[in-house]
Amino acid sequence: MGENHTRPLSEIEIRVKALETLLIEKGLVDPAAVDALIDTYEHKVGPRNGAKVVARAWTDPAYKQRLLADGTKAILELGYSGIQGEDMVVVENTPEVHNVLVCTLCSCYPWPTLGLPPVWYKSAPYRSRVVIDPRGVLKEFGTEVADEVKVKVWDSTAELRYMVLPERPAGTEGWSEAQLAELVSRDAMIGVAKVAAPGK
């Protein structure tokens, strides 16, 4: 994809190729397995999974209860599980509380429901600032949190992986689960955005 095969390889491309070819020769890595993993996380796993979890929770109160009580198990009900989602905790936004996620020490992120993290989530500016100035960071994402609302920042320093259950926007009464899932963005499940009401 946009890689010009006639140009000389960059230093990092050479390092990666050297490592991979040596590991293949030693029988430690099967390139077909590498290909399959890339394809899975590039094309099959992503925030649409999380959006379906959110939409189910919005339309099925019993599911929502299970999701908040045991995130891992409830997410598995929809078929999502695996690496970096082994132990899931879902935190609910309400009119009183706004939750936002970070991993200050590295870049932990719930892969089965949100896919691989965007660069900004892994970057030093976000990781350093969102803990000390969450309202300022939210404002940069265009998210206003009223003064009377409590902001909770969840720093995933251990092996729990978090996901935000955003508030269901007004004006979506009677919508189907599939329609609702379309509204839910990755950023709303990280907590840097809200789910906008339809037409806004």
Partner: peptide, 14 residues
């Protein structure tokens, strides 16, 4: 080396 099927199984199992 784990093969393709094992790799996807491991990813799904965590």
């Amino acid at each position: 080396a784990i093969n393709l099927v094992q790799a996807l199984g491991a990813a799904l199992a965590g």
